[in-house]
Amino acid sequence: MNFLETPDMRSRSPWSWPLSSILLGCTLATTLSLGSQGLLTATAQEPILRTLTVTGQGRESVQTTLTQVDLGVEVNGREAEQVQQQVAQRTAAVVELLRDRNVDKLETTGIQLYPQYDYDNGQADIIGYRGSNTVRFRIATDAAGPLIDQAIAAGANQIQGIQFVATDEALATARQSALREATEDAQQQANTVLQVLNLGPQEIVSIQINGAETPMPIPLPRQARLSAAEADVSTPVVGGEQTVEARVTLQIRY
């Protein structure tokens, strides 16, 4: 029995069924048919999201005003205890000088003590010990040269590294400028492409910042370090520039 039949109708001819039952069946069938067509029509007419993805780049240079220095004390001797004591005494004098000059970010970066061997007839004999202590600090570039000379006079005998850096405030400002330039670059690229195609931007769907990291310090070439350490005159120290780069990716609906 279908949904329109009654028990007494099944025994009669369809031509004798009530007109209201026939009309109800037609109405329900029409409604179901239209509803199905309506779902298909809505799916077919759903708009396709059209997007354009562009990546802009920004670059900002900032002058370095600080110098990061790695100074070391190295001592050779026959007895390990004697070597270590000399390293400690000379390093303490260097650290006291650096603290008196109010350097920034003073820290110990390495302490070593190891034996030296003489290899003869296939045997390794200890002939002495080598000890070292390395400290790192930052100071204004214009004061770095005289301070290095004073530290060497106080007991340091190694210049293991010199790097130039900008202040945190200057790097933060440069980072914001690089991000702004990258965003503007991405917008200009999108506008150019859409104008050529006679299209217009509608809204930004997503934004991704791909980079605006702090750049690495600028190292002084090794040859320059050696010549400066061996010079009899005051050690010259000249900084440079750090470059902050940023990339911004925009997804734009058109």
Rank of each mutant, 00 (worst) to 15 (best):
V237M: 02
A229N: 07
Q85D: 08
Q84S: 15
I152G: 06
S61H: 00
Q89S: 13
P217L: 13
L71D: 06
V165M: 11
Y129L: 11
R50E: 12
Q176N: 15
G239R: 01
E96A: 13
I48S: 00
R138N: 00
D149E: 15
L40R: 05
E245Q: 13
I207W: 09
P146A: 08
Q251F: 00
I139N: 01
T109S: 05
P146I: 10
G239W: 02
T243P: 06
A166D: 04
R175P: 04
Q163G: 08
D142G: 14
T235K: 03
S234V: 07
R180G: 10
A80R: 09
T64Y: 12
Y117I: 08
F137E: 03
R90I: 08
I218S: 05
S20W: 14
M216T: 15
Q63I: 14
T214W: 02
A172G: 04
S11G: 07
G240D: 13
Q188V: 11
S177T: 00
R78N: 05
A124C: 01
P217C: 13
Q82A: 15
A170G: 01
Q223I: 15
N198K: 11
L197S: 06
E245P: 09
L113I: 05
G38K: 13
Q89K: 15
V193W: 06
A156W: 07
V248I: 13
Y114A: 02
S20P: 07
A42E: 09
E203N: 15
G35K: 00
G145Q: 01
R59K: 12
A143P: 00
R10G: 13
D118C: 01
N191M: 15
Y117F: 12
E60V: 03
